[in-house]
Structures are given as structure tokens and as C-alpha cells.
Design a protein around this nucleic acid. Structure first.
Lengths: 118, 118
DNA sequence: TTGTTTTACTTGTCAATAGAAAGTAAAGTG
DNA sequence: CACTTTACTTTCTATTGACAAGTAAAACAA
């Protein structure tokens, strides 16, 4: 696969550019989890979809680099890292909701996890 | 990567399921092109993003299988194949518009191609 | 009717990536 | 001072994507 990221752009189409940025199997799920209030590495690992730790590490680093999430050290525990959405990351809630709505209507047996109820 | 498709579901989350279905680098761009009125293999190949023909063939077959597009033989030319969106494929315009809006606002120097003006 | 072009693919090769499992290192806890 | 927690890193294998080239059937042109 050609490199995904802000430096390899296939065209100026906003759809193509958005896919270049976050169009893979995991980025949006990480953003979903952070939107739901998760903050730490293990919380993200524990999500139902079962991301591998090497993949999660890579994605977290990438999402920081492109400015969709930010990484802050915890004050009371030096091991603890807190990940959260930036403003740009939060603005993905629009697309996210459209995708949720589409999934609920078009993919059989999908359901919101309790934490996502609106 | 684990197999993408309706038979390998990571969870019941509508976001995860939608990503399992169409969350890759090319599916949404093919759907975009069909939404814009393209119908034939070479029209799709000619899109600015430059999909490889083996990948396009695979994706077209896949999108037919999952019912988002349909394939019809042309009446006047037996070589000619016409691809188009099904109702389910058309219903992706909601997510697509949300992604367009997000891209236009959050990815520098993106612009709608003329055919997409609304 | 024969050679060329068009259309929609298929095949082969190589490099990059994903996923699984195990290991590690620093910080905190009893 | 051992044990646990947290956040990774490493190694290995299999799959996938990108690129280039080839193909087969239908249509068109001479």
C-alpha cells in the first residue's frame, strides 16, 4: 500500500484526502474510543475489536503527528499516558455520526455499545 | 490485515462494521465516482487517484458481492460493462457528504472536483 | 477477412503492512 | 526488595497493495 499520511496525497479531493489521513481499519475506532472518554493505552487495547499493541502504538503516534489526538503525561503517575482528541479530532464527530447512522440502517445486527447511546 | 468483508466482523459496533465493509483506501472513491455518473472500467481507472487495474477489479467484484454496486452488461456492445450504485450504495451519500465537509474544512488545499459541485 | 483497437480484465513480482505472541523497561506498590 | 502495572518494542509470518506486463473477446477499419 502506498504510504498513508499527510505527505502522500493522491489528489485534492476531500474524500481522497480524508481517506489518506484516516481511511484505514483502526484510526476511526481509536477516535471513537477517545470520543467516548477512554484515555489510556490499556483501555484502548481492551476494546472489543482487539487491536494488536504494535498497531495501536503506531496509530497513536501517527494520530498525534497529524494533530487529531494529543498525548499528555499523567500528573500523579509517571507511567501513565493520557490520550485525548484535539479540536480537529473532535470535529470528526460529524462523519462519525453519519457512519453510525449508515451502519445501523444498512449492516444487519449492528448496535451501539451502551457508552455510545445518545 | 484480517479479511475485510461481511463475513469477518470484529464487533457489532456500526462504525467497526462499516469499516469492515468499506473502510479501505479505494472503496469509497469508487462509490464516489459511480455517484458522479461514471459507469465503465476505464472511466474508473482514469480517476486522478490512479487505482491499479487488479485492485479495481477486485474491489468492483467485492462491492457487487456486498450489494453496494451492481454490474450490468451493455446492450449495444457486448464488451461493455456498466457499473452503478444500488440503493444501499446510494445511501452512502450521507457519510460521503460528511466526509467531504470535514475534508474541506480540515485538510489544507482540498477542493471539490467540478463534477462534485452541489 | 484480416489486422488493429477497445474494453475489461489476469498474472507475476516485489515491497510494505498487519497480526500474533513474546519480551522489555521504567515506575509504582506492598 | 520482589511483584505488578503501564506502555510499549521486537520478531516472525502471511497477506496485501502497487506496478508492469500480458491476455481474450468483441468491435471496427481496410
Amino acid at each position: 500500500m502506498r504510504k498513508i499520511g499527510p505527505h502522500a496525497r493522491r489528489s485534492d479531493c476531500p474524500i481522497a484526502c480524508t481517506l489518506d489521513l484516516i481511511g484505514d481499519r483502526w484510526n476511526l475506532l481509536i477516535i471513537r474510543d477517545l470520543a467516548l472518554g477512554k484515555q489510556h493505552f490499556d483501555e484502548l487495547v481492551e476494546s472489543e475489536e482487539g487491536i494488536a499493541t504494535n498497531v495501536l502504538t503506531k496509530r497513536l503516534k501517527y494520530l498525534c503527528e497529524v494533530g487529531l489526538i494529543k498525548k499528555v503525561a499523567s500528573e500523579d503517575d509517571a507511567r501513565r499516558v493520557c490520550y485525548s482528541l484535539t479540536a480537529a479530532g473532535e470535529s470528526l464527530e460529524g462523519p462519525l455520526e453519519a457512519i453510525i447512522d449508515w451502519g445501523l440502517e444498512n449492516v444487519p445486527n449492528t448496535r451501539l455499545i451502551p457508552a455510545m447511546a445518545r
